[in-house]
Design a binder for these strands. Structure first.
Lengths: 194, 194
DNA sequence: CTAAAAAGAGACCGAACGTTCACTTTAATA
DNA sequence: TATTAAAGTGAACGTTCGGTCTCTTTTTAG
Protein backbone atom coordinates (compact mmCIF):
# COMPACT_ATOMS: atom_id res chain seq x y z
CA UNK A 1 0.00 0.00 0.00
CA UNK A 2 2.80 2.40 0.75
CA UNK A 3 5.36 0.77 -1.49
CA UNK A 4 3.31 1.48 -4.59
CA UNK A 5 3.24 5.21 -4.01
CA UNK A 6 6.95 5.30 -3.32
CA UNK A 7 7.76 3.38 -6.48
CA UNK A 8 5.46 5.56 -8.55
CA UNK A 9 7.18 8.69 -7.31
CA UNK A 10 10.55 7.08 -7.92
CA UNK A 11 9.66 6.38 -11.54
CA UNK A 12 8.46 9.93 -12.06
CA UNK A 13 11.63 11.39 -10.65
CA UNK A 14 13.90 9.15 -12.68
CA UNK A 15 11.90 9.76 -15.85
CA UNK A 16 11.70 13.52 -15.52
CA UNK A 17 15.15 14.42 -16.84
CA UNK A 18 14.77 11.93 -19.67
CA UNK A 19 11.47 13.30 -20.94
CA UNK A 20 12.70 16.85 -20.43
CA UNK A 21 15.81 16.35 -22.53
CA UNK A 22 14.73 13.83 -25.16
CA UNK A 23 11.11 14.89 -25.47
CA UNK A 24 8.05 12.68 -25.21
CA UNK A 25 8.28 11.20 -28.71
CA UNK A 26 12.03 10.82 -28.30
CA UNK A 27 11.77 8.91 -25.04
CA UNK A 28 11.08 5.18 -25.12
CA UNK A 29 9.76 3.00 -22.35
CA UNK A 30 13.09 1.19 -22.54
CA UNK A 31 14.76 4.43 -21.48
CA UNK A 32 12.46 4.50 -18.45
CA UNK A 33 13.15 0.85 -17.64
CA UNK A 34 16.87 1.47 -17.80
CA UNK A 35 16.71 4.55 -15.60
CA UNK A 36 14.51 2.90 -12.98
CA UNK A 37 15.99 -0.59 -13.28
CA UNK A 38 12.46 -1.89 -13.42
CA UNK A 39 10.96 -4.32 -15.90
CA UNK A 40 8.09 -3.43 -18.20
CA UNK A 41 5.44 -4.77 -15.88
CA UNK A 42 6.89 -2.87 -12.97
CA UNK A 43 6.47 0.42 -14.78
CA UNK A 44 3.10 -0.30 -16.36
CA UNK A 45 1.60 -1.28 -13.03
CA UNK A 46 1.87 2.37 -11.98
CA UNK A 47 1.11 4.14 -15.26
CA UNK A 48 -1.50 3.25 -17.82
CA UNK A 49 0.62 4.46 -20.73
CA UNK A 50 3.69 6.41 -21.71
CA UNK A 51 1.45 9.43 -22.24
CA UNK A 52 0.09 9.17 -18.69
CA UNK A 53 3.62 9.00 -17.35
CA UNK A 54 4.69 12.01 -19.38
CA UNK A 55 1.82 14.05 -17.97
CA UNK A 56 2.76 13.17 -14.41
CA UNK A 57 6.36 14.01 -15.20
CA UNK A 58 5.38 17.47 -16.39
CA UNK A 59 3.30 17.99 -13.27
CA UNK A 60 6.25 16.96 -11.17
CA UNK A 61 8.70 19.31 -12.88
CA UNK A 62 6.22 22.18 -12.89
CA UNK A 63 5.47 21.78 -9.19
CA UNK A 64 9.13 21.39 -8.35
CA UNK A 65 9.88 24.81 -9.79
CA UNK A 66 6.77 26.36 -8.33
CA UNK A 67 7.43 25.05 -4.85
CA UNK A 68 11.06 26.07 -5.05
CA UNK A 69 10.10 29.64 -5.82
CA UNK A 70 7.44 29.57 -3.12
CA UNK A 71 10.01 28.60 -0.52
CA UNK A 72 12.36 31.38 -1.59
CA UNK A 73 9.71 34.09 -1.82
CA UNK A 74 8.14 33.25 1.52
CA UNK A 75 11.33 34.18 3.37
CA UNK A 76 11.59 37.65 1.84
CA UNK A 77 9.44 40.50 3.20
CA UNK A 78 9.62 43.15 0.46
CA UNK A 79 8.01 42.94 -2.97
CA UNK A 80 11.21 43.94 -4.70
CA UNK A 81 13.08 41.28 -2.75
CA UNK A 82 10.53 38.68 -3.72
CA UNK A 83 10.86 39.51 -7.40
CA UNK A 84 14.63 39.48 -7.21
CA UNK A 85 14.54 36.19 -5.37
CA UNK A 86 12.21 34.68 -7.95
CA UNK A 87 14.40 35.83 -10.82
CA UNK A 88 17.55 34.55 -9.15
CA UNK A 89 15.92 31.22 -8.57
CA UNK A 90 15.19 30.79 -12.24
CA UNK A 91 18.62 32.11 -13.15
CA UNK A 92 20.38 29.54 -11.01
CA UNK A 93 18.26 26.44 -11.14
CA UNK A 94 16.98 25.96 -14.62
CA UNK A 95 19.84 25.55 -17.04
CA UNK A 96 22.03 23.01 -15.35
CA UNK A 97 19.15 21.08 -13.89
CA UNK A 98 17.42 18.36 -15.87
CA UNK A 99 17.69 19.82 -19.30
CA UNK A 100 16.12 23.21 -18.99
CA UNK A 101 12.64 24.59 -18.62
CA UNK A 102 9.81 22.07 -18.76
CA UNK A 103 7.34 24.67 -20.03
CA UNK A 104 9.61 25.36 -22.97
CA UNK A 105 10.40 21.74 -23.74
CA UNK A 106 6.98 20.21 -23.29
CA UNK A 107 5.22 23.30 -24.64
CA UNK A 108 7.17 23.42 -27.88
CA UNK A 109 6.58 19.73 -28.47
CA UNK A 110 2.95 19.59 -27.47
CA UNK A 111 1.43 22.75 -28.88
CA UNK A 112 0.36 21.31 -32.21
CA UNK A 113 -0.14 17.67 -31.38
CA UNK A 114 -1.01 17.04 -27.74
CA UNK A 115 -4.01 18.97 -26.41
CA UNK A 116 -3.92 17.36 -22.97
CA UNK A 117 -0.31 18.33 -22.37
CA UNK A 118 -0.93 21.70 -23.97
CA UNK A 119 -3.59 22.44 -21.38
CA UNK A 120 -1.22 21.49 -18.57
CA UNK A 121 1.43 23.80 -19.97
CA UNK A 122 -1.15 26.55 -20.28
CA UNK A 123 -2.02 26.19 -16.61
CA UNK A 124 1.65 26.28 -15.65
CA UNK A 125 2.20 29.48 -17.61
CA UNK A 126 -0.83 31.02 -15.99
CA UNK A 127 0.46 30.15 -12.52
CA UNK A 128 3.84 31.61 -13.39
CA UNK A 129 2.37 34.90 -14.58
CA UNK A 130 -0.14 35.16 -11.76
CA UNK A 131 2.48 34.90 -9.10
CA UNK A 132 4.55 37.71 -10.56
CA UNK A 133 1.50 39.91 -11.05
CA UNK A 134 0.39 39.30 -7.49
CA UNK A 135 3.74 40.28 -6.01
CA UNK A 136 3.68 43.53 -7.98
CA UNK A 137 0.11 44.38 -7.02
CA UNK A 138 0.83 43.62 -3.37
CA UNK A 139 3.85 45.88 -3.63
CA UNK A 140 1.72 48.66 -5.01
CA UNK A 141 -0.85 48.29 -2.27
CA UNK A 142 1.82 48.43 0.38
CA UNK A 143 3.26 51.56 -1.23
CA UNK A 144 6.49 49.94 -2.32
CA UNK A 145 5.89 50.18 -6.07
CA UNK A 146 4.54 52.97 -8.24
CA UNK A 147 1.07 52.60 -9.70
CA UNK A 148 2.74 52.95 -13.11
CA UNK A 149 4.18 49.46 -12.75
CA UNK A 150 2.03 47.42 -15.15
CA UNK A 151 1.86 44.06 -13.43
CA UNK A 152 0.41 42.06 -16.31
CA UNK A 153 2.78 43.53 -18.83
CA UNK A 154 5.80 42.91 -16.70
CA UNK A 155 4.77 39.34 -15.95
CA UNK A 156 4.50 38.57 -19.65
CA UNK A 157 7.80 40.27 -20.27
CA UNK A 158 9.44 38.08 -17.63
CA UNK A 159 7.93 34.97 -19.11
CA UNK A 160 8.85 35.69 -22.71
CA UNK A 161 12.37 36.96 -22.05
CA UNK A 162 13.05 34.15 -19.66
CA UNK A 163 11.94 31.41 -22.04
CA UNK A 164 13.78 32.97 -24.94
CA UNK A 165 16.89 33.31 -22.81
CA UNK A 166 16.75 29.67 -21.74
CA UNK A 167 16.52 28.69 -25.39
CA UNK A 168 19.47 30.76 -26.56
CA UNK A 169 21.58 29.88 -23.53
CA UNK A 170 21.10 26.19 -24.19
CA UNK A 171 21.78 26.45 -27.89
CA UNK A 172 24.86 28.58 -27.34
CA UNK A 173 26.01 26.62 -24.30
CA UNK A 174 26.33 29.93 -22.53
CA UNK A 175 24.40 30.74 -19.34
CA UNK A 176 25.43 34.38 -19.66
CA UNK A 177 22.51 35.06 -21.96
CA UNK A 178 20.05 34.05 -19.27
CA UNK A 179 22.07 35.89 -16.67
CA UNK A 180 22.00 39.11 -18.69
CA UNK A 181 18.30 38.84 -19.34
CA UNK A 182 17.65 38.39 -15.62
CA UNK A 183 19.77 41.48 -14.98
CA UNK A 184 17.69 43.49 -17.46
CA UNK A 185 14.49 42.35 -15.80
CA UNK A 186 15.80 43.38 -12.40
CA UNK A 187 16.72 46.81 -13.70
CA UNK A 188 13.19 47.35 -14.86
CA UNK A 189 11.85 46.66 -11.38
CA UNK A 190 14.01 49.43 -9.94
CA UNK A 191 12.32 51.99 -12.19
CA UNK A 192 9.10 51.61 -10.24
CA UNK A 193 10.36 51.70 -6.67
CA UNK A 194 8.95 54.61 -4.76
CA UNK B 1 18.80 15.99 -64.30
CA UNK B 2 16.41 18.80 -63.61
CA UNK B 3 13.55 16.65 -62.37
CA UNK B 4 15.58 15.41 -59.43
CA UNK B 5 16.20 18.86 -58.07
CA UNK B 6 12.56 19.80 -58.45
CA UNK B 7 11.39 16.68 -56.65
CA UNK B 8 13.88 17.19 -53.87
CA UNK B 9 12.67 20.71 -53.30
CA UNK B 10 9.08 19.50 -53.45
CA UNK B 11 9.75 16.95 -50.73
CA UNK B 12 11.40 19.56 -48.54
CA UNK B 13 8.50 21.96 -48.90
CA UNK B 14 5.88 19.34 -48.18
CA UNK B 15 7.84 17.99 -45.22
CA UNK B 16 8.57 21.35 -43.63
CA UNK B 17 5.22 21.93 -41.91
CA UNK B 18 5.16 18.33 -40.71
CA UNK B 19 8.55 18.42 -39.06
CA UNK B 20 7.85 21.88 -37.67
CA UNK B 21 4.62 20.82 -36.00
CA UNK B 22 5.26 17.20 -35.02
CA UNK B 23 8.97 17.44 -34.35
CA UNK B 24 11.71 15.27 -35.79
CA UNK B 25 11.16 12.29 -33.51
CA UNK B 26 7.40 12.67 -33.90
CA UNK B 27 7.52 12.65 -37.69
CA UNK B 28 7.67 9.34 -39.51
CA UNK B 29 8.77 8.67 -43.04
CA UNK B 30 5.21 7.49 -43.65
CA UNK B 31 4.05 11.03 -42.90
CA UNK B 32 6.45 12.27 -45.57
CA UNK B 33 5.28 9.66 -48.08
CA UNK B 34 1.69 10.64 -47.46
CA UNK B 35 2.36 14.35 -47.83
CA UNK B 36 4.39 13.93 -51.02
CA UNK B 37 2.45 11.00 -52.46
CA UNK B 38 5.77 9.35 -53.15
CA UNK B 39 6.83 5.81 -52.28
CA UNK B 40 9.65 5.03 -49.89
CA UNK B 41 12.26 4.71 -52.60
CA UNK B 42 11.18 7.96 -54.18
CA UNK B 43 11.97 9.83 -51.01
CA UNK B 44 15.15 7.95 -50.15
CA UNK B 45 16.61 8.59 -53.59
CA UNK B 46 16.89 12.26 -52.64
CA UNK B 47 17.75 12.02 -48.95
CA UNK B 48 20.12 9.60 -47.28
CA UNK B 49 18.07 9.47 -44.09
CA UNK B 50 15.27 11.08 -42.15
CA UNK B 51 17.89 13.07 -40.25
CA UNK B 52 19.35 14.44 -43.48
CA UNK B 53 15.87 15.47 -44.61
CA UNK B 54 15.16 17.16 -41.29
CA UNK B 55 18.34 19.21 -41.61
CA UNK B 56 17.41 20.38 -45.08
CA UNK B 57 13.92 21.20 -43.84
CA UNK B 58 15.33 23.41 -41.13
CA UNK B 59 17.57 25.15 -43.64
CA UNK B 60 14.59 25.72 -45.86
CA UNK B 61 12.43 27.21 -43.12
CA UNK B 62 15.25 29.31 -41.76
CA UNK B 63 16.08 30.72 -45.19
CA UNK B 64 12.43 31.31 -45.96
CA UNK B 65 12.09 33.61 -42.99
CA UNK B 66 15.43 35.25 -43.57
CA UNK B 67 14.74 35.96 -47.22
CA UNK B 68 11.27 37.23 -46.41
CA UNK B 69 12.67 39.76 -43.98
CA UNK B 70 15.38 40.69 -46.45
CA UNK B 71 12.80 41.51 -49.09
CA UNK B 72 10.83 43.68 -46.69
CA UNK B 73 13.80 45.50 -45.22
CA UNK B 74 15.35 46.26 -48.60
CA UNK B 75 12.41 48.40 -49.62
CA UNK B 76 12.54 50.63 -46.55
CA UNK B 77 15.08 53.46 -46.37
CA UNK B 78 15.15 54.38 -42.68
CA UNK B 79 16.61 52.29 -39.87
CA UNK B 80 13.51 52.71 -37.75
CA UNK B 81 11.39 51.65 -40.70
CA UNK B 82 13.53 48.59 -41.26
CA UNK B 83 13.19 47.50 -37.64
CA UNK B 84 9.46 48.10 -37.69
CA UNK B 85 9.16 46.17 -40.94
CA UNK B 86 11.17 43.30 -39.55
CA UNK B 87 9.06 43.14 -36.40
CA UNK B 88 5.82 43.31 -38.37
CA UNK B 89 7.02 40.53 -40.60
CA UNK B 90 7.55 38.22 -37.67
CA UNK B 91 4.30 39.36 -36.10
CA UNK B 92 2.28 38.48 -39.16
CA UNK B 93 3.97 35.48 -40.70
CA UNK B 94 5.05 33.14 -37.96
CA UNK B 95 2.08 31.97 -35.98
CA UNK B 96 -0.37 30.94 -38.63
CA UNK B 97 2.28 29.65 -40.94
CA UNK B 98 3.51 26.07 -40.67
CA UNK B 99 3.34 25.63 -36.96
CA UNK B 100 5.37 28.48 -35.59
CA UNK B 101 9.03 29.37 -35.36
CA UNK B 102 11.48 26.77 -36.60
CA UNK B 103 14.22 28.03 -34.30
CA UNK B 104 11.97 27.44 -31.32
CA UNK B 105 10.65 24.07 -32.45
CA UNK B 106 13.86 22.53 -33.72
CA UNK B 107 15.96 24.25 -31.08
CA UNK B 108 13.93 22.99 -28.14
CA UNK B 109 13.99 19.45 -29.49
CA UNK B 110 17.62 19.35 -30.57
CA UNK B 111 19.49 21.13 -27.83
CA UNK B 112 20.24 18.09 -25.69
CA UNK B 113 20.28 15.33 -28.27
CA UNK B 114 21.18 16.49 -31.77
CA UNK B 115 24.47 18.40 -32.05
CA UNK B 116 24.28 18.78 -35.83
CA UNK B 117 20.86 20.39 -35.73
CA UNK B 118 21.86 22.38 -32.66
CA UNK B 119 24.70 23.96 -34.63
CA UNK B 120 22.34 24.87 -37.45
CA UNK B 121 19.96 26.51 -34.99
CA UNK B 122 22.88 28.34 -33.43
CA UNK B 123 23.83 29.77 -36.81
CA UNK B 124 20.24 30.82 -37.48
CA UNK B 125 20.04 32.65 -34.16
CA UNK B 126 23.32 34.38 -34.91
CA UNK B 127 22.06 35.55 -38.28
CA UNK B 128 18.86 36.81 -36.68
CA UNK B 129 20.71 38.83 -34.05
CA UNK B 130 23.34 40.13 -36.45
CA UNK B 131 20.80 41.60 -38.79
CA UNK B 132 19.07 43.54 -36.04
CA UNK B 133 22.36 44.76 -34.63
CA UNK B 134 23.51 45.90 -38.04
CA UNK B 135 20.39 47.91 -38.71
CA UNK B 136 20.81 49.71 -35.39
CA UNK B 137 24.49 50.43 -35.92
CA UNK B 138 23.80 51.71 -39.43
CA UNK B 139 21.09 53.90 -37.97
CA UNK B 140 23.53 55.31 -35.46
CA UNK B 141 26.13 56.03 -38.12
CA UNK B 142 23.56 57.83 -40.23
CA UNK B 143 22.53 59.92 -37.24
CA UNK B 144 19.07 58.40 -36.98
CA UNK B 145 19.57 56.63 -33.63
CA UNK B 146 21.20 57.74 -30.41
CA UNK B 147 24.53 56.24 -29.46
CA UNK B 148 22.81 55.05 -26.28
CA UNK B 149 20.93 52.44 -28.28
CA UNK B 150 22.69 49.22 -27.31
CA UNK B 151 22.46 47.17 -30.49
CA UNK B 152 23.53 43.84 -29.05
CA UNK B 153 21.31 44.14 -26.03
CA UNK B 154 18.31 45.08 -28.09
CA UNK B 155 18.87 42.25 -30.55
CA UNK B 156 18.91 39.71 -27.76
CA UNK B 157 15.84 41.30 -26.25
CA UNK B 158 14.02 40.97 -29.56
CA UNK B 159 15.04 37.36 -29.90
CA UNK B 160 14.10 36.29 -26.39
CA UNK B 161 10.82 38.20 -26.20
CA UNK B 162 9.85 37.08 -29.65
CA UNK B 163 10.50 33.39 -29.02
CA UNK B 164 8.78 33.53 -25.66
CA UNK B 165 5.83 35.31 -27.21
CA UNK B 166 5.51 32.72 -29.95
CA UNK B 167 5.47 30.01 -27.31
CA UNK B 168 2.79 31.60 -25.15
CA UNK B 169 0.70 32.65 -28.14
CA UNK B 170 0.65 29.10 -29.44
CA UNK B 171 -0.12 27.56 -26.09
CA UNK B 172 -2.87 30.08 -25.38
CA UNK B 173 -4.18 30.09 -28.96
CA UNK B 174 -3.96 33.84 -28.81
CA UNK B 175 -1.83 35.87 -31.23
CA UNK B 176 -2.37 38.96 -29.08
CA UNK B 177 0.54 37.97 -26.87
CA UNK B 178 2.92 38.14 -29.78
CA UNK B 179 1.25 41.29 -31.03
CA UNK B 180 1.69 43.02 -27.68
CA UNK B 181 5.30 41.96 -27.38
CA UNK B 182 6.01 43.35 -30.85
CA UNK B 183 4.35 46.61 -29.77
CA UNK B 184 6.59 46.80 -26.70
CA UNK B 185 9.66 46.22 -28.83
CA UNK B 186 8.63 48.99 -31.20
CA UNK B 187 8.13 51.39 -28.31
CA UNK B 188 11.64 50.78 -27.17
CA UNK B 189 12.99 51.76 -30.58
CA UNK B 190 11.29 55.14 -30.35
CA UNK B 191 13.23 55.97 -27.19
CA UNK B 192 16.43 56.18 -29.19
CA UNK B 193 15.32 58.24 -32.18
CA UNK B 194 17.17 61.51 -32.44
C1' DC C 1 4.32 -17.22 11.13
C1' DT C 2 0.93 -17.69 7.66
C1' DA C 3 -2.18 -16.38 4.24
C1' DA C 4 -3.81 -13.06 1.18
C1' DA C 5 -2.87 -9.19 -1.56
C1' DA C 6 0.07 -6.30 -3.97
C1' DA C 7 4.21 -5.46 -6.74
C1' DG C 8 7.45 -6.73 -10.13
C1' DA C 9 9.49 -9.81 -13.85
C1' DG C 10 9.90 -10.74 -18.46
C1' DA C 11 8.34 -13.42 -22.43
C1' DC C 12 5.37 -12.16 -25.90
C1' DC C 13 2.26 -9.46 -29.15
C1' DG C 14 1.16 -6.93 -33.38
C1' DA C 15 2.21 -2.67 -35.30
C1' DA C 16 5.20 0.81 -36.78
C1' DC C 17 9.76 2.23 -37.38
C1' DG C 18 13.80 3.65 -40.69
C1' DT C 19 16.07 1.72 -44.44
C1' DT C 20 17.34 -1.25 -48.57
C1' DC C 21 17.05 -2.94 -53.20
C1' DA C 22 15.62 -5.37 -57.40
C1' DC C 23 12.58 -3.86 -60.50
C1' DT C 24 9.41 -0.84 -63.47
C1' DT C 25 8.38 3.53 -65.27
C1' DT C 26 9.56 8.01 -66.83
C1' DA C 27 12.45 11.62 -68.61
C1' DA C 28 16.38 13.17 -71.16
C1' DT C 29 19.41 12.64 -75.09
C1' DA C 30 20.92 11.75 -79.76
C1' DT D 1 11.87 7.68 -82.22
C1' DA D 2 15.13 4.66 -80.08
C1' DT D 3 18.38 4.32 -76.42
C1' DT D 4 19.93 5.02 -72.07
C1' DA D 5 20.18 7.06 -67.86
C1' DA D 6 17.58 8.68 -64.09
C1' DA D 7 13.57 8.59 -61.08
C1' DG D 8 10.13 6.23 -58.61
C1' DT D 9 7.86 1.75 -56.90
C1' DG D 10 6.81 -1.26 -53.28
C1' DA D 11 7.82 -5.66 -51.14
C1' DA D 12 10.77 -7.04 -47.67
C1' DC D 13 14.25 -6.56 -43.76
C1' DG D 14 15.59 -6.43 -39.08
C1' DT D 15 14.68 -3.58 -35.16
C1' DT D 16 12.27 -1.13 -31.90
C1' DC D 17 8.06 0.53 -30.43
C1' DG D 18 4.18 0.77 -26.74
C1' DG D 19 1.55 -2.35 -24.36
C1' DT D 20 -0.33 -7.03 -22.30
C1' DC D 21 -0.49 -10.93 -19.41
C1' DT D 22 0.84 -14.86 -16.81
C1' DC D 23 3.65 -16.10 -13.36
C1' DT D 24 6.91 -15.35 -9.46
C1' DT D 25 8.42 -12.60 -5.63
C1' DT D 26 7.73 -9.40 -2.06
C1' DT D 27 5.12 -6.82 1.04
C1' DT D 28 1.44 -6.35 4.18
C1' DA D 29 -2.00 -7.74 7.62
C1' DG D 30 -4.00 -10.85 10.99
Amino acid sequence: MKKAERTKQFIIEKSAPIFNTKGIAGTSMNDIMEATQLAKGGVYRHFASKEALSLEVFNYLSNLMHDGVTAVVREIPTAKGKLYGLLDFYDNRILSKWGGCAILNFGAEADDTNPVMKEKVRAAIHRFKSRISKIIIDGQESGEFSKDFDAGNYAIKVFTMYEGAVLISKIENNPEYLHNIIAMLKKEIDLYIL
